[in-house]
């Protein structure tokens, strides 16, 4: 007996070997093409018929899109760089520790061996774990089209679940992380320790000088239609003294910044409460050096 096959929809397949070829294809297909990088989201969506593209443009043969380099005071990560490579990279560990922490608790080894950073961002799941980490690191993304390129701050990239400002002809080619002056961290709460989606996730970044927060950023995942910065928390702490009391008071404001839903993983109420706890832990860690 033949095994049950759930065929993928039919599509034209292209495997360009250069970015310019890929950009031309993107222009020709006017939004009716899908980009294939790691395939860990796209292939599932194809199987479920959640997307039925006319063409699939496979980026995997474009070697120039896979790199990690530190230049001009910023870390640059190519769109096709696998999560495993980023997680194991000494320069990323040094310059963007929160990103390494986030990737370490994402998906499973084999998924990380294929999945890419740009793919995680462009898929734009509200629970994308790399997003809060990159948001507190003040990252930007480079979007390229046949007509030119633009740099978009990640804070302005997400529009809603699976929606971003990326235009039909654009390809995200790199992620840019400025060298941080302070410390950053990422904390995730899942239903299990490994291979699980976030119930809630919080990243924090702080620069402390003379016992005061000179810069503070907090971002959250899985508690709103997009990953987002917790602006009320940040505002409440900036310029303030680093103290248990100030951190506890500010962390509670997460409840105003987030707007979670109830789903199979947790209730909206639980997500709200636990985000405040995660924010408190993350802020203590980056400002007081706690584990």
């Amino acid at each position: 007996m033949e095994a049950e096959v759930r065929p993928l929809p039919r599509f034209e397949y292209f495997s360009p070997s250069s970015l310019s070829e890929a950009l031309k294809l993107m222009k020709d297909y006017q939004g009716k093409a899908r980009l294939l990088a790691g395939g860990t989201d796209l292939v599932i969506k194809l199987k479920k018929r959640a997307v039925i593209p006319e063409a699939v443009i496979d980026l995997n043969k474009i070697a120039a899109l896979s790199f990690i380099k530190f230049a001009g005071g910023s870390l640059h990560i190519g769109a096709l760089t696998r999560l495993t490579e980023i997680k194991d990279s000494p320069v990323v560990k040094e310059k963007a520790p929160a990103l390494v922490e986030a990737i370490s608790v994402m998906a499973s080894t084999q998924i990380r061996n294929r999945a890419t950073l740009a793919g995680n961002l462009c898929n734009a799941s509200p629970a994308a774990d790399t997003a809060p980490a990159l948001l507190v690191l003040d990252a930007s993304v480079k979007l390229q089209s046949a007509d030119g390129d633009r740099i978009v701050p990640l804070a302005q990239f997400f529009m809603g679940p699976e929606q971003t400002v990326r235009k039909p002809g654009e390809i995200m080619t790199e992620i840019i992380v400025p060298e941080p002056k302070g410390s950053s961290t990422f904390i995730k709460l899942g239903r299990r320790k490994a291979f699980t989606l976030s119930v809630a996730a919080v990243a924090a970044y702080a620069q402390v000088s003379k016992g005061k927060f000179t810069e503070v950023r907090v971002a959250m995942g899985a508690v709103a239609p997009t990953p987002l910065r917790a602006e009320k928390v940040e505002k409440a702490l900036k310029g303030k003294e680093v103290s248990e009391e100030n951190i506890a008071k500010a962390s509670a404001l997460v409840k105003i910044d987030c707007c979670p839903i109830t789903d199979v993983r947790a209730s909206a109420e639980y997500r709200t409460e636990v985000s405040a706890v995660l924010a408190k832990r993350a802020l203590r860690k980056v400002s007081m050096g706690e584990k």
Binding site: Y13, S15, L36, G38, G39, T40, V43, I44, K47, V56, D58, N60, S108, T109, Q110, I111, N113, R114, F195
Partner: peptide
Amino acid sequence: EGLCGTCTVILNGVPVRSCLMLAVQ
């Protein structure tokens, strides 16, 4: 759909899910 690991193959030295790759790749 990439969750169970029973379709694992070693591709160029790296373990991957064969259910999440196109054969042409």
